[in-house]
Simulated scan of single mutants.
Amino acid sequence: MLVSVSTMSPDTNAGERTVPSHAGEIAVVTGASTGIGEAATRRLCADGWTVYAVARRAERLDALARETGAIAAPCDITSEAEVTALRDRVLGEQGRIDALLNISGGARGTDWVADAKDEDWEWMYRVNVLGTMRITRAFLPALRANGQGTVLNLTSLASQRGYEGGGGYNAAKFAQHGLTEALRLEEAEHNVRVVEVAPGLVHTPEFSLMRLGGDAEAAARVYAGVREPLTAEDVAEVCAFAVNLPHHVNLDLVTVKPVAQAAIHKLLRE
């Protein structure tokens, strides 16, 4: 069955695209309480997926579930016990998983390496790398058993180029990129499709705010004068497109930037 779904957020005048209905297919989306993870949950629900929305903030997940029909699944992906419980819940309730979207991640601080804070680097590594590893490891047996499982890892343009003040985030995202490349090689024989989406500048409510310690003015300056930075919905659309494609089609690495960001070191501001 084919269904028509809007390609953009509801307040745009964009057209529609037709995708196969994914009714009966199960997706787990991490980072679903805000930003790209929330937008990806909304998009996949609209495409017919049954989506387990995963994040730590249960109240936000409950609100998202009421709006979209997603299943709220509170979980801290840096906790082995909570990840195991999440896996057992999903497989116990559904008996399968078709796609795992590792959207959860984040940055803390803009210190140069000479001034690096251990706690910031350790947090970024736990969330971006170990969290991705733990939840992927937990669901891999079921994704293999599926016969056509998909893992999508959201990395960053920071996984491809270093920049001043980005050392800790670069290190974490380079590591996540390396994990993703190794996973693709290891799981090819199991027909597990491994996708990487690497966004550039995305204007979301919390990323820069959290990175800059809650300084709203500093966070606003990150996007000041940039004509049309990416939105969470833009990136979610790319993620949904990747997992909605026929399974034999693999988008190994998709780098997504606003036109104003010609490169990580060249961002046009008006």
Rank of each mutant, 00 (worst) to 15 (best):
E80A: 15
R42E: 13
D98Q: 10
G35P: 09
R144G: 11
G147E: 04
L140H: 08
T84R: 14
I135T: 03
R144I: 04
E67C: 10
V90T: 09
A65I: 12
N128V: 04
S104L: 10
I97G: 10
V29K: 01
A72F: 03
P74S: 02
A55V: 14
L143M: 06
S104M: 01
A70L: 06
A58N: 13
R96T: 14
G106D: 12
V151Q: 02
R144K: 14
V113K: 02
R57Q: 14
A39N: 05
D98N: 14
A99V: 15
L143D: 06
R87Y: 01
G37A: 09
R42S: 07
G95Y: 02
S104R: 07
V113P: 02
M124A: 03
G35C: 08
A85R: 13
G37H: 04
A116V: 14
A55Y: 07
L91S: 07
G95L: 05
V90K: 04
G35I: 06
D118V: 10
E59K: 12
D47A: 12
D62G: 03
A114S: 15
V51S: 11
V29I: 11
E59V: 14
P74T: 12
P74K: 01
G48L: 11
P74F: 00
C75H: 07
R144P: 09
R42I: 11
D111H: 12
A145R: 15
R126P: 00
E80D: 14
V51A: 09
R66C: 01
R108P: 03
A107R: 11
I97H: 05
V83D: 07
M124K: 06
P141Q: 06
N102C: 11
G105L: 03
R126I: 00
T41C: 11
A114N: 09
M133T: 13
Y125P: 00
E122L: 13
A32K: 05
E93C: 05
E80K: 14
L100F: 03
V54T: 11
L86R: 01
D98K: 06
A114E: 15
D47I: 01
G92F: 02
G131D: 05
R126V: 00
W49D: 04
Y125G: 01
I97Y: 01
L86Y: 02
A99D: 08
Q148V: 12
D62C: 00
M124T: 03
T41N: 06
L86V: 11
V129I: 10
V129Y: 04
D62L: 09
V83A: 04
D76V: 07
R96A: 10
T68D: 08
V54P: 04
